[in-house]
Amino acid sequence: MSVNGARLPWLSAGFVVVAAAVSVWPEAGEALAYRRASAEGAGAWRALTGQLVHGTVPMALADLGVIALCGTFLERWRRGLALGAGLAGLLAVGITVHGSPQVMYFDGSSGVAASLFAASALWLALTSRSSASRVLAGFGLVLLVAKAALEQWGGGHLSGVALPDGASVLPAAHLAGSVAGACAAAWAAVVSRADRG
């Protein structure tokens, strides 16, 4: 679907609308958020749906804002990459959350946002003709991964966003999302070159 030749980012818009609706509807949030007690066995899908739920408005604005922006970038360039990076991020964060025994409850779509950011940055770094654009995009990606890695293994978190009472940030989700998004973009670049070659 396009308007005046420009692709409409309906995938990103759809995700943002659904996530915003779930976040302002407490009953839906309660039903979809990840709870380890409910997620054992057949309830493991909550590790995916929990990423649609946001406990506070600033958290939703930050996560969904990045998804809207990076998703729009990717969809205008290559919609398949946007879909692939989004799904890869969703899955990678889901596995990380369910595989981390200390996580009893999880919400937030920062992993998907990190995945879309990483995919946009790497795609730009690999395909742009402008060297300034390549350097800036590559620098952004390195900083994102370095920050997530530092938080994961160095401890602490630099977020200034208001979290729900008693909640901590899970840097592993950001790291998993970033790596998944970068892998999706790298794969798309390889396929694109093979098609051209």
């Binding site: 804002g65 990045v66 995009a137 630099l158 200034g160 940030v169």
Partner: peptide
């Protein structure tokens, strides 16, 4: 308490500006 959230912060928003 086992409660975790995925939340980006000002640093990531700055990186989006860079992008």
């Amino acid at each position: 308490n086992g409660r975790y959230s995925g939340a980006l912060g000002p640093v990531e928003l700055g990186l989006v500006g860079l992008l």
